[in-house]
Amino acid sequence: MKKMLTLLLSAGLVATATQAMSSPKEDLAHFRTYFEQRFPGIQLNEFGNGPYALDASKRLQWESMEEFPPYEEYVDKGREIWETPFKNGKSFASCFGKDASKVRPKYPHWDKASSKVVTLEGDINKCLKANGEKPFGWKKGKIAHLGAFLGYEARGQKTNVVVPNDPKALQAYEDGKHFFYAKRGQLNMACADCHVYYAGQRIRGNVLSAALGHTTHFPVYRAKWAKKGKGDGLGTLHRRYGGCNKQVRARPFKAQGKEYRNLEFFHTYMSNGLEINAPGYRE
């Protein structure tokens, strides 16, 4: 009897373990299907427009903003940063290659040598340091300007994150996935609560965007981030992660720390196949 119990128990455990370890491919299929069924009238790429894909009145405001997009000047600034040589005469092209349109679609990716998820921002600062330059701040300013330019150049190309079949890479993906689905903070809410289960609903004047397509338009220009003391409007994905953690009264993690890099790995993978449309405008 005891044996039987252990057997049953371990079988149950194995079953839950394999369920938790469904492959990234399966995860992606389920994720996609969920949103397709939830919002049957919305085409895949439209999800990259966040709340404006889900709410008609918000969409009208947004379309009028996009006529003279406030992020344009930062795309130009980013271009300047890209083209301006370092003190040693080299430039970002020496790290990323000459074709600026090919940079953004490579990120984030798994780096086997360092066993880490590498982000665009991480490589921007790595490049600066390797060339004897001072690294940029992680969340706004120059790093976001350069990101906006590289995103703009890559518009129309598809998100294509690869999770290699390597236990460490899969673990990073699983960690990111867990971060996304785990409730946290005093308000006890997960990313998924707001951006999966409650997507499309209103919360304090906001319409909750779907997590599908969440990453395609970053860095983003937010009217809120252009207010006094907040910066020039532009911010990176990890800045947004911090904001969403704070909202549920959880202590935000460090931008470009392991937690957010792994989250970005999972989160971006979930938007595979969607077009890059960075930089975006949001309220």
Binding site: Q19, A20, D27, F31, Y34, K177, H178, A182, K183, Y197
Partner: peptide, 17 residues
């Protein structure tokens, strides 16, 4: 203590769809 308990309770969090 609540934050710790919460993290433990969420150890196996995953999609519900």
């Amino acid at each position: 203590e609540a934050g710790y308990k919460q993290a433990m309770a969420q150890k196996n969090a995953g999609p519900r769809f």
